[in-house]
């Protein structure tokens, strides 16, 4: 049965890439290269090392932005989750931010911080931070009251309740918030490279488009999507491995 699932996945990949190949051969548009052409371009980029240079550039704002968002987001989330006053003060801001199209702030960030790394880091942060904060504070608030009560009845001090009950109980949700934040961070990093200044992978995309080298453009896009998906998938697996018992400990599953 395990083979069936894998086989179907391969079959479905074959169908989609096959359709891409055929659509490229017709061609449906002058700007639609075939799958094989795109993969050739990707191979060429990999061999001459261009893609590695590009990713070194692209991942810089992404990593810096994610680290900043994680540190600030989780601390702020813990804080709002634990204190009613800070909840009252901060939660509405992040709820609005979560619903709002924050990408609209980009032109403003560019004016304020120029077109360099700072702006790009900011873009990643505004995309990634709200979901991290909201997940963290929600998880803290939703700690099952019965285990908090248990700890209190066994004489836990406030510090024990936070360190030994709330944080371990909240960590699966905090972690998945982090994963969603990274996913949004990828969107932000690429948006920044396409909108602010073309660097890294954004540069390959923009430059190839301007010289009508469509296979290279598609290859770059394919690679960044593949990278994001593979990375997020690994993260999710790691998460499941890490918190396997946590999720099954409750009755509803």
């Amino acid at each position: 049965m395990k083979h069936r699932s894998l086989l179907l996945k391969l079959l479905s990949a074959l169908l989609v890439f096959g359709a891409w190949e055929i659509a490229g051969r017709i061609p449906v548009s002058f700007a639609f290269p075939t799958f094989l052409e795109s993969m050739q371009a990707l191979l060429a980029m990999t061999l001459d090392g261009r893609i590695f240079v590009a990713y070194a550039e692209t991942l810089k704002p992404l990593v810096v932005g994610i680290v900043i968002s994680a540190v600030f987001g989780i601390s702020l989330g813990l804080w709002t989750g634990l204190s009613q006053r800070f909840d009252w003060l901060f939660s509405p801001v992040f709820i609005v931010m979560q619903a709002a199209p924050l990408a609209a702030l980009i032109p403003l960030l560019v004016m304020a911080y120029g077109i360099g790394l700072t702006s790009k880091v900011f873009v990643v942060c505004i995309m990634a931070m709200p979901v991290i904060v909201l997940n963290t504070s929600g998880a803290v608030r939703n700690t099952p009251s019965s285990i908090k009560e248990m700890a209190t009845s066994f004489l836990a001090r406030d510090r024990d309740v936070i360190l030994k009950i709330i944080i371990p109980a909240a960590s699966p949700v905090i972690f998945s918030g982090l994963r969603l934040g990274i996913s949004a961070g990828f969107i932000g990093a690429i948006l920044a490279e396409l909108k602010i200044t073309p660097t890294g992978v954004g540069d390959i995309i923009t430059y190839s488009r301007s010289i009508a080298d469509y296979p290279s453009m598609y290859a770059a896009i394919f690679s960044i999507i593949a990278l994001a998906v593979v990375f997020l998938n690994l993260l999710e697996r790691f998460e499941n491995f890490l918190f396997a018992g946590n999720n099954r400990g409750y009755a509803s599953d």
Partner: peptide, 18 residues
């Protein structure tokens, strides 16, 4: 408040799943 002279057993067990 809670004290060392009493111990509680909970209806829903209240075990730490981790």
């Amino acid at each position: 408040g809670p004290g060392p002279d009493r111990a509680f057993v909970f209806q829903d067990f209240a075990l730490l799943p981790w």
